[in-house]
């Protein structure tokens, strides 16, 4: 079942001024419950606009957004409820930390939801452990944390609201490889444990390849591709023409395929490449007729 859907959504910025431009054009997408969707597209493709539509931070110029089949803008007063159900982690979320302690900052969302003190406490601890923040850090000032820890604390602040749909905009930007790998694993674990829906916006195709089940490619405000990660990554050339960088492994496989080696389309991680190549390399002698 679709948890969230956009129907013919168009977004125009600065309407009525010389700077008017269309960020999204007649976009209709439906996101299935429990899916892990990677959203890719280069800067200006409309991906940030798209995700801000989903939790009601932006109102479409025309079109509707359905959450569990209901128009989110039907009752203006209930838009906050929508934001609790569709959690959004912005790019560089550590820049929004403001409380005296990490605990209070993570509790900000749950407190706005009007939860009981006990419930808030539970959620803060759960969220902190989800992103691997040690408990003793919770009583520290968020500004005394390291860069990576700040990022985690900020993400925990949204996870603690336990949204049904969690959107993350470039969560790994600026992290080193170690931080990047850990965070991606934690996000994936969060999704599997809570059985919720996750949308990961990224221009790192390697990141998306590693964790997403489905991929949505946006290009100049429209959907350019949509499907399983395997099916999208098999269209290597088209992605490159859109100015996106395909994982190096995918490119290597494409070159081998061009040279006549029978390699399946859907290879986009090193592990998949290993599995695809080993039988050919080892069993090559047996199979050659």
């Amino acid at each position: 079942m679709a948890v969230i859907e956009t129907k013919h959504c168009t977004v125009r910025y600065s309407v009525g001024t010389p700077f008017e431009r269309e960020a999204l054009t007649d976009l209709s997408v439906s996101i299935e419950e429990g899916d892990f969707v990677g959203i890719i597209g280069h800067t200006g493709s409309g991906k940030s606009t798209f995700v801000q539509l989903l939790n009601g931070l932006l109102k479409p110029t025309s079109g509707t957004i359905l959450l569990n089949g209901k128009d989110i803008w039907e009752h203006l007063k209930e838009i906050r409820q929508v934001r609790f159900q569709v959690g959004m982690v912005f790019q560089y979320p550590e820049h929004q930390l403001f409380e005296e302690t990490v605990y209070k900052d993570i509790a900000f969302g749950p407190r706005n939801m009007g939860l009981s003190e006990n419930e808030i406490r539970d959620r803060v601890y759960r969220a902190a452990s989800m992103v691997g923040l040690k408990e003793e850090l919770l009583e520290k000032s968020p500004f005394d944390l390291s860069g990576g820890e700040k990022r985690r604390a900020a993400i925990a602040g949204v996870m603690a609201m336990q949204p049904r749909v969690l959107i993350l905009d470039e969560p790994t930007a600026g992290l080193d490889p170690r931080g990047r790998n850990q965070l991606l694993q934690q996000i994936r674990a969060y999704k599997d444990e809570n059985n919720c829906t996750v949308l990961l916006v990224s221009h790192s195709m390697e990141d998306v390849a590693r964790v997403a089940d489905h991929v949505l490619v946006l290009n100049s405000g429209t959907i350019a591709m949509q499907g399983t990660t395997a099916s999208v990554f098999s269209r290597c050339d088209e992605l490159e023409n859109m100015g996106l960088s395909v994982p190096a492994v995918t490119k290597i496989m494409a070159q081998l395929r061009r040279a006549g080696v029978p390699i399946p389309d859907a290879v986009y991680t090193v592990e998949q490449a290993r599995q695809a190549l080993l039988p050919l390399l080892k069993g090559g002698a047996d199979r050659a007729v």
Partner: peptide
């Protein structure tokens, strides 16, 4: 490590 390097490395470990 760069992906091409990593791929060669995992294959080497399989005896290739």
């Amino acid at each position: 490590v760069p992906q091409p390097t990593e791929l060669c490395h995992v294959l080497q470990q399989e005896g290739i």
